[in-house]
Amino acid sequence: MNSFEIIYDFASIDGFKKFQILLIPVGIFLFLKFILFLIENDEEENLFKDPEHQKFIVKIIQYLSILLFFLFSILFGYGYYKTNDLYHNAKFQTEGFVTNFHPMPSGGHEDETFTVNGVKFEFSDFDISGFGYNNSKSHGGAIDANKYVRISYIRIKNSNQILKLEVRK
């Protein structure tokens, strides 16, 4: 009996993990809020030379971080919706042993590539543009040479994006 362990599944919480990038503009906004607090409460007036000018610059950057948050939200929301639609309506599945495995070096600069049953896959830990699996072997990923896997994937921009990865136990 072949039992599989699910490593990654876009349809579960794994697909939402990519939205963590939205924390960057929120963090910038909160950090700048703290800077504004320091500027406004500088009683000795020697920490900030021109507090009004500096408050103006900080507020502009704060507004840009809010804009960035909404831009990321829209772009990631649209990408998630598009990927979810493809996952439910146009996904492919392949199963077999991993062949032609070329691991990504730990420092990056190359994609991890492999083939399963004639279907080529490639990804990088450093590419967060899609919602597919992208955890390379050098950073703790589950794919390795001669492992038996089952992969559900979609085609985007002439590449195969892994949306569900299962490894045989």
Rank of each mutant, 00 (worst) to 15 (best):
Y87E: 03
S138Q: 12
T94G: 07
F92C: 06
G79H: 06
G140V: 05
S124H: 13
K147C: 07
D127R: 09
K82F: 12
N89R: 10
N84A: 13
K120S: 11
G79I: 06
L75F: 14
N100Q: 15
Y81S: 05
L75E: 10
F97W: 06
H102L: 10
N135K: 14
F121P: 02
Y81M: 09
T83A: 05
G79S: 09
G140S: 10
E110F: 14
K91Q: 08
I61Y: 13
D127V: 06
L68C: 09
G118P: 03
D85N: 14
D125F: 14
N84D: 14
G118V: 01
G132P: 03
Y87G: 00
L71V: 12
F101Y: 11
G77I: 04
F114R: 02
E95R: 06
L75T: 08
Q93A: 11
F131Q: 00
D127P: 04
G132T: 01
S138T: 05
K137L: 15
I128F: 14
I128V: 08
F72N: 03
A145W: 13
N134K: 12
F121M: 01
K120V: 05
T99Q: 15
G107C: 10
I61K: 04
S124K: 09
V119I: 10
G130W: 08
Y133H: 01
L68M: 14
S124P: 07
F114C: 03
N134R: 15
L75Q: 13
V98D: 02
Y63H: 10
I66S: 04
S106Y: 14
I151A: 00
R150S: 12
E112T: 02
Q93H: 09
I151P: 01
S106N: 11
T99C: 08
F72W: 09
